[in-house]
């Protein structure tokens, strides 16, 4: 599928209608609300959202209030993909039986954080992908269990501080590297998998569009800077997200029906220090440790460029 119609080219292309309402309890400067707001503008009213337990869920539905103008359900932490499988199957059979108007296109979207996706929800996610439900799974990745107060997850990057991976004398932040969830999902051979970044919202919004157009499961992995967990000035969320791409700590790519491409090219990348320094979670790392992270990024860039067959992510710029 290479449908390129109706893609977003600029902010003015987005619908004006707001389906994610203000007044919720997300942190000042939280970039998750930006992601959700864009997501619902793209998806529109005929959408059912299944939300895993997490920051977005608890902050937007404090009874008797809600921020959601579309049908929304939360069941538990690890099972959003299974719940969505049920919702999607129900709609399919109820349309067939004429209980729901068969002409209505109803989109089913899962919204889950990194804990609910990489870790506790991984089994249900894999099951949903394998069964081929037509569901778009949106992962907002803030790289730790932020809702419970910043504990490490399978997504937390190497050397990052969390309350369970302190930077101490012996342990220096998270000893392991971030799990490549996008590629693990892509290995399920589903129609559409993409990584994106809230700073590159045109890229993000178009990936939502493509994910919703896919004939089967799709998976959109969005980097979501977290002011509380990453410990940065609330003004800097979008800037940090952009720095993630500029340093190639984060690469925006897509697998569109098996075809891999990098959607945001970086001709010259910045040193990772530009991304790490504004974040309290990397405070206290030695120069050697920062260089170690740089090396991890270098080898990832090399791998990606090799996959694409050209230098889509360029060399480190001179300081």
């Amino acid at each position: 599928m290479s449908v390129r119609i109706n893609l977003v080219r600029r902010a003015q292309d987005l619908p004006r209608e707001e389906l994610f309402m203000p007044g919720h309890g997300l942190c000042a400067g939280c970039t998750a609300s930006t992601i959700v707001r864009h997501l619902l503008k793209i998806a529109g009213r005929n959408t059912i959202v299944v939300n895993a337990t997490g920051c977005v869920e608890v902050s937007t539905t404090m009874y008797p209030y809600t921020s959601w103008k579309v049908p929304w359900i939360h069941v538990a932490f690890e099972n959003a993909a299974a719940v969505a499988s049920g919702v999607e199957s129900a709609i399919r059979v109820l349309k067939k039986k004429g209980v729901i108007d068969p002409s209505k296109e109803i989109k089913v979207i899962v919204l889950a954080g990194d804990g609910g996706t990489y870790d506790i929800g991984f089994q249900a996610l894999s099951g949903m992908l394998e069964r081929g439900h037509k569901i778009m799974y949106v992962l907002y990745d803030n790289e730790a269990y932020m809702n419970t107060g910043i504990q490490r997850s399978g997504s937390t990057p190497a050397h990052a501080w969390t309350t369970t991976t302190p930077i101490g004398k012996v342990m220096r932040g998270k000893p392991q590297v971030k799990k490549p969830i996008g590629e693990i999902v892509a290995a399920h051979r589903i129609p559409y998998v993409a990584t994106t970044n809230v700073a590159h919202f045109i890229d993000m919004d178009n990936k939502f569009i493509k994910g919703l157009q896919a004939e089967g499961p799709s998976f959109i992995h969005v980097l979501q800077p977290c002011t509380a967990g990453w410990k940065f000035d609330p003004r800097l969320g979008i800037k940090l997200a952009r720095l993630a791409t500029q340093t190639a700590m984060w690469i925006n790519w897509e697998y569109d029906h098996g075809e891999f491409r990098v959607t945001v090219r970086v001709p010259k990348r910045k040193h990772v220090r530009h991304y790490l320094k504004p974040q309290g979670r990397f405070k206290g790392l030695t120069e050697e440790e920062i260089e170690e992270i740089q090396k991890l990024v270098n080898s990832e860039v090399e791998r990606i460029n090799k996959m694409v067959g050209e230098e889509v992510i360029g060399p480190l710029a001179e300081e």
Partner: peptide, 16 residues
């Protein structure tokens, strides 16, 4: 089974 009950929760919530 966790997903079995979760899936029927979703389906029941959707009206099935």
């Amino acid at each position: 089974e966790h997903s079995a009950l979760s899936a029927v929760v979703g389906a029941s919530a959707a009206g099935a």
